[in-house]
Simulated scan of single mutants.
Amino acid sequence: MTRLRYICFGYFVALMIAASVNYIPGLTDDEGLAFGIFALDLYDDALHVASALWALIAGLVSHRAARTFLILFGAAYLGDGVFGFFTGWGYLDLGIFTNESLGMDWSLPRLFANLPHLALGGFALWAGVTETGGK
């Protein structure tokens, strides 16, 4: 079992947790905001579950599949986080196509709302690009 395959299993767990946030009492406020910062809807949950299953399958299949997942997933989620930071909406849930841009905002809530995609995407992309051997 290689390091990248283990990382994929970690992503499976993290993404399944993200998909379950709306369903754990106390993690959303009266306005439906998770941790009081961002809203997750059915599209977000479906995206997280699909991504989690992709991570699980990649981790089970091979080192090459794990590396491919980490690079593609990483690029997609990192880009989504960047778009979210600059516009207030991401593209993976089609938010930039269905909502008007909120414009640039350097506030902590905007940073925290996009930090999960920036961090998960950035780490996945880094891991997939920097490790090529089956270690």
Rank of each mutant, 00 (worst) to 15 (best):
P116F: 06
G36S: 09
V49F: 03
S51M: 05
G133D: 15
I37H: 06
Y23W: 09
F86I: 14
T132G: 12
A113T: 10
L33M: 04
R67L: 12
F9W: 15
T68G: 07
G122R: 07
I57P: 00
E100W: 06
T132R: 13
H48V: 05
W106T: 04
Y43C: 00
A39C: 03
M16N: 04
L60M: 14
D105N: 13
G103H: 08
P116Q: 02
L27E: 11
H117E: 00
N22P: 11
A66H: 13
Y23N: 06
L118N: 03
L115E: 01
Y43T: 06
A127H: 11
F35Y: 13
L94G: 00
D93S: 08
L118Q: 09
Y43M: 00
G81Y: 04
D30Y: 02
I24K: 11
D29M: 01
A76S: 12
G84S: 05
S101L: 03
D105T: 00
L118F: 05
N22G: 10
L40Y: 03
L125N: 14
W126L: 14
A127S: 14
W89K: 10
R67G: 09
W126K: 08
F112Q: 12
A66N: 14
G79D: 08
L125T: 05
T2N: 11
A39F: 01
L102Q: 13
G134R: 03
G134D: 15
G121L: 07
D44C: 02
V129L: 13
M16Y: 08
R3W: 00
F9D: 14
G36N: 02
T68S: 11
L125E: 10
T98H: 12
T2S: 15
E31M: 11
P109K: 15
F97S: 08
D41T: 01
A66C: 15
Y43E: 11
Y6G: 11
A113W: 02
S101G: 05
V82N: 05
I71P: 03
M1K: 15
Y91H: 06
L72F: 09
F35M: 12
L27H: 06
G133P: 00
F12D: 00
G26E: 03
A52G: 12
L60C: 14
F35N: 09
R5Q: 09
F35R: 08
G74Q: 10
F38L: 11
A113Y: 02
G79R: 07
L27V: 11
D45H: 01
H48M: 02
A55Y: 05
I71Y: 07
I96V: 09
A50I: 07
F85D: 04
L72E: 04
F69Y: 14
T68D: 12
Y77N: 06
L125V: 05
V82D: 00
F9V: 06
L118C: 00
F69R: 03
P109C: 15
L78R: 08
G88T: 09
L47C: 09
L33I: 04
G74R: 10
A66F: 15
T132D: 09
G121I: 03
L53C: 07
L102N: 10
